[in-house]
């Protein structure tokens, strides 16, 4: 069986490597993906030349992610939500308290006290900065790398840091189970709500242009830009909630009493 695995791996590797020369060179402007076929321009050419005039968003990646390919991103968010709910459904246990398999090592000596002071103070200083940076990444996704997913992960990680530095109940006190389940669903509802608003105004799902009618002081182009921000906020809500939910359930075997 070991030999079979080796042969299969080597064979697949040779097969994949033999396809490498067929790829266009890195950044080749004449490849079909970049230059288009014949006199038909390619879609990436369109994104590069027309994104800014269409949406006034300098970061093309964000514009493609949240506007041109809005469906993809919406269901990517749904996938993350479903993954979180699946982990919740498998791990969460509502039975009564049990003796912990690992004794909680609370060091009451003087050295342990010093350690708690150092870690606690560091976290107290650094967590607000992390959260501020996460909000910046979400809000500034139009102009710099970032967006809902990255900002949401950073924001979720700041709550995980609380759980790591103190204990899980301290983090759950700030971000309880009821709240993270609600926030995860609200994020997707925000995203789908933007789509449904467009449908209500007689356009296609997630066709943001028409939203300038209900957004004060915007034209159709800025409406797309602002709607992207709203959608990214929805993504950030879901990702934040699900990241913390996964950690809380994994680290405490679904009992949410004590993790480490």
């Amino acid at each position: 069986m070991k030999w079979f695995g080796l042969i299969a791996t080597v064979f697949t590797g040779i097969l994949l490597l033999s396809a490498v020369p067929d790829f266009a060179a890195f950044g080749d402007p004449d490849s079909p993906a970049n230059g288009g076929l014949g006199d038909h321009p390619s879609v990436s050419q369109y994104y590069i030349t027309d994104t800014y005039t269409d949406t006034k968003v300098p970061n093309i990646v964000t514009a493609v992610l949240a506007d041109y390919r809005g469906y993809d991103t919406m269901f990517e968010t749904v996938v993350i939500f479903a993954a979180g709910i699946a982990i919740f459904a498998i791990l969460r246990s509502f039975s009564g308290p049990v003796a912990p398999s690992h004794p909680t090592a609370i060091d009451t000596s003087v050295e342990g006290d010093h350690q708690r002071i150092i870690i606690g103070t560091t976290c107290r200083v650094i967590i607000p900065v992390i959260q501020l940076f996460a909000l910046y990444v979400v809000a500034h996704g139009h102009h710099s790398p970032g967006g809902g997913f990255q900002g949401g992960v950073i924001l979720g990680a700041s709550f995980i840091l609380v759980a790591l530095a103190k204990d899980l109940s301290a983090a759950l006190g700030r971000f309880s189970e009821k709240r993270y389940l609600a926030l995860g669903s609200v994020g997707i509802l925000i995203y789908a709500g933007f789509g449904l608003l467009c449908v209500a105004l007689e356009r296609n799902f997630l066709d943001y242009e028409i939203l300038h009618r209900i957004m004060p002081a915007t034209d159709p182009i800025m409406a797309r830009s602002h709607s992207m921000l709203g959608v990214e906020v929805g993504v950030a809500f879901t990702v934040t909630a699900i990241m913390f939910a996964i950690y809380a359930n994994l680290s405490s075997k679904g009992r949410l009493e004590q993790g480490f």
Binding site: S101, H102, V153, G156, A157, I160, L164, M243, I246, Y247, L250, S251, K253, G259, F260
Partner: peptide, 13 residues
């Protein structure tokens, strides 16, 4: 970042 933390949390159990 996060997936490393998840894996460590799982290994702990």
């Amino acid at each position: 970042g996060v997936s490393t933390v998840f894996m460590i949390a799982t290994i702990y159990h």
